[in-house]
Design a protein around this nucleic acid. Structure first.
Length: 735
DNA sequence: CGTTATGTACTTTTT
DNA sequence: GTACATAACG
C-alpha cells in the first residue's frame, strides 16, 4: 500500500491525528511522543489535502522559539511560503490584532509594549504617588495581583474590593491603568485582555476573524490561562453560529505553570465546550529508555485527577537510573562533575548532558565544580539581550522618539546619562503631570516655559526635550541602524558606558554596538507586521515581545545547566536531576499549599522524561540554603520510583586519599569542622556511609568529632533527622 | 549628585 | 550567602 508522503513514518495514532477529517480535536501527547511533528504534519495536511489557504489557519504557541520552529518545519514540509498563516505566540498574535485595530481599542497608533520590568517601575512610581506604606505594599505584589486579574479577564471595576487589601490593590490597578492608557502603554497581560475585549465587543471585527480562521491549533494547551482560553473560544466561534475547528495539543502531566495562572482544567473544559471533539492519545515515546519511562510513569501515577495516559516504548531497556546520595552539595557537585568527565572520556559530547535543578540558586555550586574540573558549561535563563540595562536605556530613547507620551521611557532616560535633572525636578514634573492630566513630556515642557521650574533645572529640562526633538528631526529619515547609532551617540549613552571601567562596562559598550547590528539586520519584511507600522515601531515591538534568544557561543561543546522548568520541551542523552530532596524538590512552599505538590510531581515527571539514554538522580543529606546548613531527606519522588529501576551508587570518594581533591580542600574543610580524615579513618566510619541504629533506624554519617572512646559521630537518620551519638555506645551497624 | 553602608528577601518563567 | 535596594553620608 502506498502511503501519503505526509503520513509516512508516523505511527497509527499520529496518522489518525494528522489525517483526521475536519473536526475539533484534542491530542493528548505524552512527553517525547512526537507532538510537534503531529502538529506540523496536520497543518501541512490541511493545506494539501483539504486545500485550505494558509490564510485560514492559525497556530498558537507559548514561546517564540516554538512558533519559529513550527513555521520553519511547516514551510519545509509544504515547500512554500506560509507568510499568510498566523503562527505565533498568544501575545504576538494579540499584538497583531491590536495594531490592526488600534482605533477600535482606543490605543494610539504608536502604542508601546511594557515588559515586566517596565511594568514594575511604573507601578512603583504610581504607588509612591499614592503615598502608600511602602513596608506593606510592594510593587512586586501589586504587579502580581494586577496581572493575575488581567489573566482572568478582570478589569479594576470588576473587583468588588470587599476587604481592605483588595480595595487598595483595586485603587492601584485603577491608577496604573489610567497611567498606561495616557502614555499609550500596554503590558503583556493587557495585550491579551484588550484583544479579547476587541473580539468580544466588536461584532464586525469578530466575525471577520471568525470567517477567516477555519482552523485554530493550540500547542501546550495545559498552559493556557483563562483569558487565553476565552480568546480561542471567541475566535473559533465556540458554540456560536459560525463554528471553526479547534485542535488542541497538550499533556496534563506536564502542566507546570499553575503558579502563573495556567489552568489544566481548560483541557477538561474544552471537551465540555466542544462536545463533538475527538480525543487522540499519543503514548508511544520515541525518546527515552524503558527504564526511564517506567520510572517516570510510576512517579506520575501518584497524582490524582489525571486524564490518564501511560507512556511506552518499543526501544531498549537501557541502563538503570543512578541514584547518588551525596553528603552535602559540594559532594553532589563533585560527583556530577566526575561522572561528566567519564562520559566525556568515552567520546560523548558534553552538549548531550543536562544538569537540571529546581531553583536557580543551585547552579552556583555546580558551576564551581564544573569550573574546577575544567568542563565547559552553559547556563540557560540569564538576562536576555533586550532585557539588559544598557539596551533598555537605548530602547527607551527610541520609544520616546516614537511616542513622547511614553512616561516609562521618559523616566528611564531623562537623567541617563546625568544631565542635572535630579529627584526634586522630576518630582515637580510628576506633580505637574498629575495635576494637568498630561504626560510627563508635556508637563516638563510646560513647566519650563511657564517658569515654574527655575533657571538651572529649566535649562536642563529644555536641553533634554530639545535633544529628543532634535534627534527625531535629524534621524527621522535614517535607516533603523543608523538612527539607533546616532541616538546612542548623541544622547551620551555610549559615552557614559565608555567612561565606566571594568569588564561589565566593556560588555555594555559591546551590547550597544550589537544593538545597532540588530537594527541593521532587522528586516521588516521578515516580520509580518501590519504595513503601516514604522520600522521603528516594528523593531520596538519585536524587542519587547521577543526579548532575544541568549546568544551564547553555540559552537562550543558545553554541558547545559537549567531549571527543570526551562528544560520542558528539550531532550538530552544524559540528564542529571540534582537536589532531589524534601524541602527543595518538592519545594517547601509547595508542601504548604494544596494542589502544589501535584505540580511538583509533574515537574519531576518532566525532568525525568528529558533523559534519552541515562538518568542520574542526586540529592544531598546536608546542604547550605541561604547560608544555613539544612539537613534534608531524599525526596518522596525517589521513593515513588520502582526499586528495580534504581541503582544506588555507593559513595566513592572516601576510599581515595584526601589529596584527591586538593583544589577544593578549603571548602570541604569548612564542612568537616574539625573532623580530620585521620579521625575518620581511625573510627572505621566514612562520611556519607549508611548506618543502622537499633532504635533510630537507618541514616547517613554526616560528621565526626574527636578520637578514641570519646569520639562522637553525627548521623542523619531518615526518620528522625540528625543526631550526635557517642560511637562507643551507639553500636551502629554498617549497611 | 555620587559613593558607601546597612537592611532585607529569596521557587519556578514567558510574553 | 548574596544580590539588590534604599538610606545616610561626603
Amino acid at each position: 500500500m502506498t502511503q501519503h508522503p505526509l503520513l509516512e513514518q508516523l505511527n497509527d495514532k499520529q496518522r489518525a491525528a494528522v489525517s483526521a477529517p475536519e473536526r475539533h480535536m484534542l491530542v493528548l501527547a505524552g512527553a517525547g511522543s512526537g507532538k510537534t511533528r503531529v502538529l506540523v504534519h496536520r497543518i501541512a495536511w490541511l493545506l494539501q489535502e483539504f486545500h485550505l489557504s494558509p490564510y485560514s489557519v492559525m497556530a498558537v504557541t507559548f514561546t517564540n522559539k516554538a512558533a519559529a520552529e513550527m513555521r520553519g518545519r511547516v514551510e519545509e514540509l509544504v515547500g512554500s511560503s506560509t507568510r499568510a498563516m498566523w503562527i505565533g505566540t498568544f501575545h504576538g498574535l494579540a499584538h497583531r490584532l491590536l495594531r490592526a485595530h488600534y482605533m477600535d481599542v482606543d490605543l494610539p497608533q504608536n502604542f508601546q509594549i511594557l515588559d515586566s520590568d517596565d511594568q514594575q517601575r511604573m507601578l512603583k512610581r504610581i504607588m509612591r504617588s499614592m503615598n502608600l506604606d511602602e513596608k506593606r505594599w510592594s510593587p512586586k505584589q501589586a504587579q502580581w495581583f494586577i496581572n493575575a486579574k488581567k489573566d482572568e479577564g478582570l478589569r479594576a471595576h470588576h473587583l468588588d474590593g470587599h476587604d481592605f487589601n483588595e480595595r487598595t490593590y483595586k485603587e492601584i490597578y485603577d491608577a496604573y491603568q489610567v497611567a498606561c492608557d495616557r502614555a499609550g502603554l500596554v503590558d503583556f497581560a493587557e495585550l491579551l485582555l484588550r484583544a479579547h475585549e476587541l473580539l468580544r465587543d466588536n461584532r464586525i471585527v469578530r466575525e471577520h476573524y471568525q470567517r477567516r480562521f477555519r482552523h485554530i491549533l493550540v500547542d501546550e494547551f495545559q498552559d493556557t490561562n483563562a483569558i487565553q482560553y476565552a480568546w480561542v473560544k471567541l475566535l473559533s466561534g465556540g458554540g456560536g453560529d459560525h463554528e471553526n475547528y479547534v485542535t488542541i495539543v497538550g499533556d496534563d502531566d506536564q502542566s507546570i505553570y499553575g503558579w502563573r495562572g495556567a489552568k489544566i482544567e481548560n483541557i477538561h473544559q474544552f471537551t465540555r465546550d466542544y462536545p463533538s471533539v475527538e480525543t487522540i492519545r499519543l503514548e508511544q515515546n520515541y525518546r527515552s529508555t524503558n527504564t526511564i519511562l517506567s520510572a517516570a510513569n510510576s512517579v506520575i501515577a501518584n497524582n490524582n485527577d489525571r486524564l490518564g495516559k501511560e507512556l511506552w516504548t518499543d526501544g531498549s531497556h537501557g541502563e538503570p537510573i543512578d541514584l547518588y546520595a551525596a553528603y552535602n552539595e559540594l559532594d553532589e557537585a563533585r560527583y556530577i562533575a566526575s561522572q561528566i568527565e567519564s562520559w566525556h572520556e568515552k567520546g560523548n559530547a558534553l552538549q548531550d548532558v543536562a544538569l537540571l535543578y529546581r531553583s536557580n540558586a543551585q547552579s552556583r555550586v555546580l558551576e564551581e565544580a564544573l569550573l574546577h574540573a575544567r568542563i565547559p558549561y552553559r547556563i540557560y535563563g540569564g538576562l536576555r539581550f533586550f532585557d539588559r540595562q544598557e539596551v533598555k536605556d537605548a530602547l527607551a530613547y527610541l520609544r520616546l522618539l516614537a511616542n513622547r507620551n511614553d512616561d516609562a521611557a521618559l523616566e528611564r532616560v531623562i537623567n541617563t546619562p546625568t544631565r542635572g535633572i535630579g529627584a526634586r525636578t522630576l518630582e515637580i514634573i510628576r506633580d505637574g503631570a498629575r495635576q494637568r492630566g498630561t504626560s510627563l513630556w508635556d508637563a516638563a515642557k510646560q513647566l519650563a516655559s511657564e517658569k515654574v521650574l527655575t533657571g538651572r533645572a529649566a535649562n536642563a529640562v529644555l536641553a533634554f526635550t530639545d535633544l529628543i526633538q532634535q534627534l527625531e528631526d535629524e534621524t527621522g529619515e535614517y535607516s533603523l541602524g543608523r538612527q539607533v547609532d546616532t541616538v546612542i551617540k548623541s544622547s551620551g549613552l555610549m559615552a557614559m558606558y565608555q567612561a565606566e571601567k571594568g569588564e561589565k562596562a566593556e560588555t555594555r559598550v559591546e551590547n550597544l554596538k550589537e544593538l545597532v547590528n540588530a537594527c541593521d539586520n532587522f528586516d521588516q519584511l521578515d516580520n509580518e507586521q501590519p504595513e503601516d507600522m514604522t520600522p521603528l515601531n516594528a523593531f520596538l515591538a519585536h524587542a519587547a515581545l521577543e526579548s532575544g534568544e541568549e546568544q551564547a557561543d553555540e559552537y562550543q561543546d558545553a554541558v547545559q545547566l537549567m531549571t527543570l522548568h526551562s528544560a520542558k520541551g528539550l531532550e538530552f542523552p544524559l540528564v542529571f536531576m540534582c537536589g532531589v530532596e524534601e524541602g527543595l524538590f518538592p519545594s517547601q512552599q509547595s508542601l504548604d499549599e494544596a494542589g502544589r505538590l501535584a505540580e511538583e510531581r509533574r515537574l519531576c515527571y518532566v525532568g525525568m522524561t528529558r533523559a534519552m539514554q541515562k538518568l542520574v538522580i542526586t540529592y544531598a543529606e546536608q546542604r547550605r540554603v541561604y547560608g544555613q546548613e539544612k539537613l534534608h531527606r531524599a525526596s518522596r519522588f525517589i521513593a515513588e520510583i520502582p526499586p528495580e529501576n534504581l541503582h544506588h551508587v555507593r559513595m566513592q570518594s572516601r576510599s581515595r586519599p584526601a589529596d584527591d581533591f586538593a583544589g577544593t580542600q578549603q571548602s570541604y574543610g569548612r564542612f568537616h569542622s574539625g573532623a580530620s580524615h585521620e579521625a575518620f579513618a581511625e573510627s572505621g566510619y566514612q562520611l556519607g556511609q549508611r548506618v543502622r541504629h537499633s532504635k533510630f533506624g537507618e541514616g547517613t554519617v554526616l560528621n565526626y568529632e574527636g578520637s578514641g572512646p570519646q569520639s562522637r559521630i553525627q548521623v542523619n537518620f531518615d526518620d528522625l533527622g540528625s543526631k550526635w551519638l557517642v560511637v562507643a555506645y551507639a553500636r551502629l551497624e554498617r549497611c
